[in-house]
Design a protein around this nucleic acid. Structure first.
Lengths: 109, 109
DNA sequence: GGCATCGTTGGATGCTCGTCAAACAATTGG
DNA sequence: CCAATTGTTTGACGAGCATCCAACGATGCC
């Protein structure tokens, strides 16, 4: 059984306002920080520094990021492998991701 | 009686998550578009392409943008003059504003 | 002074959202 | 085959938010 990808918007359907809304939440911005720095791939829900949140809550935030076009999720067995849609976002909003990364590094949140 | 400025966060207190949350709304993102392109100063509530909204609603959105550190408001008589805090934002999050401007131009919203 | 203008404030309302809990489905391992 | 693991889904609840309306304060103008 081959891997599958969870549904996500096409590159040209990514809306800036939805991206900003998705990232305008402390938890999801922290998730972005994890995916930007750190590994580009291979992320499980556990070990994200979100132990204080229920697993269903984290799953919900993942869905918001994916449906906004920020992340891409591949399903393999019981695990989900999440990565940033870096090239798509760079194509759609050049420089935005880099600016966000620098902003996150500048804040010692 | 000299002009006054409405309260706003200091440059170093501007939080990325609050900026993104403030801009993650269609109306406020449109307001940003107005302040980015178009005149840099001298903005009244009327004539912003928001005639469908109540004036108190627009006032509320202005307050959110100001308290997030996106805009700066000077009070002069009955009018409010709003401008982007461009240098402050560039200092805090280099490249973010430019990326947002390009993203807004790319979308024919 | 009296009145129109401009924006703010407060309350009220309905919707969205973040969170948790429990049930569920799918998968892996003994 | 059974049990543990992993993430999703659904419902529920409380907080926050966007919106409108009415009232208010401040200002400018005749």
């Amino acid at each position: 059984m081959p891997d599958e990808w969870l549904p996500q918007p096409a590159t040209e359907d990514i809306r800036l306002v939805k991206v900003l809304h998705a990232l305008g939440d402390p938890v999801r911005l922290q998730l972005l920080s994890v995916y930007l720095k750190g590994r580009e791939f291979d992320c499980e829900l556990s070990g994200l520094g979100l132990d204080h949140l229920h697993k269903s809550t984290v799953s919900h935030h993942m869905k918001v990021l994916r449906e906004a076009g920020v992340t891409s999720t591949r399903v393999s067995g019981r695990h989900r492998f999440v990565q940033l849609r870096r090239s798509d976002l760079d194509k759609r909003f050049p420089g935005l991701l880099d600016a966000l990364l620098r902003g996150l590094e500048g804040e010692a949140s």
